[in-house]
Write a protein that binds this DNA or RNA. Structure first.
Lengths: 149, 149
DNA sequence: GCCTAATTGCAAATCATTTGCAGTAAGGGT
DNA sequence: ACCCTTACTGCAAATGATTTGCAATTAGGC
């Protein structure tokens, strides 16, 4: 089952309607491998439907997130903007210095979900992990600078 | 070494100054066990210094975060506001339905940091984990409702 | 094909956070 | 103890992502 099919089923299951705009947005979302924010999604969607409105993008993102099809992520605490990924996509590390983004996966996050179920009796629907720090290149460059001092 | 002492050392180490406003804010932050947002921090700080400005609160939070004394957290992807905790405080789970917040700790998060160092060669300074889902009470109530249907 | 409720587009509102700037004050050097 | 540089503060205004009200549109069950 493709992402689009899964999404449409989920929308119907929630009593929602399959509209042209939603199909357009899902088409863009189906192709992303990285993460995307509302504005970028809007821009890419306009390639297919120049009339599509940014408000519709926001509302559709809410619907898809509630349906568990996408996951909201924050880049880093420095940046106040929501980014979305397909629900099963990897997590992201952002370098504080050069701002490069490194995707990572870890089964530790699934373990965390299980721990929450077992020890705290809660059912985790969305785990948002954003990590920031220094990438290896910046660490190297910074230690160079310090040696000079 | 108390939180206040540690904080003042860190501020000096970063070339910052010890000001009355910063002492006031640290006094409030030293006492919190839960998490706090800029506005609440401002309100509580006004008990000690009625003149203190919200802008100063924002700026001080930035300084303290950069110094690693506090950690920025997002409540949940539903809520666009930064919350801060002392750096070593636990993480939080938010129920999507009743909005209660449950604190949790897990060494899995430290493991994740280590994994990032070893496998991705990055140095994680801040890991922001926000989990949302359904608490046990809401899960129970929802299954009741479904049985009725 | 009809009808109702969900969805959309538009413009305006919201609201947390940031910024410019002029005045204030911390704290190192004398 | 006083100066002087520079960090910090307060205020008001700006910013910018996201939300909302409302009238027009349209999906999809009957």
């Amino acid at each position: 089952m493709t992402f689009l099919e899964k999404a449409n089923d989920a929308i119907r299951a929630a009593g929602g309607r399959i509209t042209g705009q939603r199909q357009t947005l899902l088409r863009v979302l189906a192709d992303i491998t990285e993460r995307i924010d509302a504005e970028t999604l809007h821009q890419r969607a306009q390639a297919y439907d120049p009339q599509i409105n940014l408000t519709t993008v926001y509302r559709t993102l809410d619907v898809l997130e509630a349906a568990g099809l996408i996951r909201a992520q924050f880049v880093s605490p420095e940046h106040n903007r929501k980014y979305y990924t397909q629900a099963q996509e990897p997590y992201h590390f952002t370098c504080r210095r050069c701002h490069q983004v490194i995707a990572f996966t870890s089964d530790l996050i699934d373990s965390l979900k299980q721990t929450l179920e077992v020890e705290y009796h809660v059912h985790a629907l969305n785990v948002c992990v954003c990590v920031d720090g220094l990438c290896s290149e910046c660490l190297a460059e910074m230690s160079l600078v310090e040696n000079v001092q």
